[in-house]
């Protein structure tokens, strides 16, 4: 059964009660929350994900709950808990769903050491992964959303999970997070994108999430081979430009962008180096023209 087959009442009752178990890529996460905004956001963004059976093992148990006592009513906050412990400070209650998403990112990045985890968006075309590692502000998620809008399969907009045994990228399709100016930019480009309401004044500014396509979620167990590694950089007003990047420089960028590289030691180095060996490496600068950017990537994928 997928989450979308549950009625809004069933979703609310599970989230507000024993927890709703959702399979997200290779991970089953049990989520609990009493926030109506999270109930509706789960119904929207995770509709195509499989609702795991109650008896199925849950890798993570997380919750986003209000405080007890008067703080429930006076400037209410939301607290994310992982295995009943809060790794972060509470945030304002209206940020409950972004907090859940950021918390899930934290869970994956700090717990899933069976993978080499890179801070990167990952998409797929013709069985090959396009990995875009980049710091905040580089336009990574904006490009990711634009490519998804034009049919690229979403593996993740935030975390590239590289299976250290196979060297392939494991999908974990979740909502795409957009911030500030990119919200309108993507909204104009992807006019039928399913977005949650804008949440203002977060630590990252204004934030929305975009529902991952059901077709991407349906292929959650289909891994992707190395294809392209592209370092995006947003530069206002510039024309799209794709330039080759040396493999050595690319490897150092991936090392910098990895959450758990040091934990894997020499094996991590070999996995990344093999991944780069099998990929074409580029840097890409663009000035916000998403049509031009998508055309560049379509040409790149078509030339492979």
């Amino acid at each position: 059964m997928i989450v979308g087959e549950l009625s809004p009442g069933e979703i609310r009752n599970r989230l507000d009660g024993p927890g709703l178990r959702i399979r997200i890529g290779p991970i089953v996460t049990e989520i609990r929350s009493s926030f109506p905004a999270i109930h509706s956001a789960i119904a929207l963004h995770y509709a195509a994900h499989r609702a795991a059976d109650d008896g199925e093992f849950a890798d993570f148990h997380v919750s986003v709950l209000p405080p007890s006592g008067p703080r429930r009513w006076i400037r209410p906050t939301a607290t994310f808990r992982f295995e009943n412990a809060p790794p972060f400070q509470p945030l304002p209650a209206e940020q409950a769903f972004p907090l859940l998403e950021w918390g899930l990112n934290w869970c994956m990045a700090t717990q899933c050491h069976q993978y080499l985890i890179i801070h990167a968006a990952v998409l797929e075309r013709r069985g090959r992964a396009l990995v875009m590692p980049a710091p905040p502000g580089s336009g990574k998620s904006t490009l990711c959303a634009a490519l998804v809008a034009r049919g690229w399969r979403l593996l993740s907009d935030e975390l590239a999970l590289i299976d250290v045994a196979s060297g392939e990228v494991v999908p974990m399709p979740r909502p795409i997070s957009l911030k500030n100016d990119s919200i309108d930019v993507v909204g104009r480009f992807w006019t039928d994108a399913a977005m949650s309401p804008v949440v203002h004044e977060t630590l990252k500014g204004s934030v929305v999430h975009v529902r991952p396509p059901a077709t991407s979620v349906a292929l959650s167990t289909t891994t992707a081979l190395p294809g392209w590694i592209v370092l995006p950089r947003y530069r206002a007003g510039e024309a799209a430009r794709l330039a080759a990047l040396s493999k050595g420089s690319t490897l150092m960028q991936l090392v910098e962008s990895a959450f758990n590289y040091s934990m894997h030691g020499r094996r991590g180095f070999n996995v990344l180096a093999d991944f780069i060996d099998a990929s074409a490496c580029f840097e890409f600068s663009y000035g916000g023209d998403l049509a031009e950017a998508v055309l560049t990537f379509e040409t790149l994928a078509g030339a492979a």
Binding site: S246, K247, G248, L251, R266, F269, N270, A273
Partner: peptide, 15 residues
């Protein structure tokens, strides 16, 4: 020391 060499580039990992 693990070594990867690409063209004139060398990247090494030191255990």
């Amino acid at each position: 020391i693990a070594v990867r060499e690409w063209d004139e580039e060398l990247v090494v990992y030191n255990d």
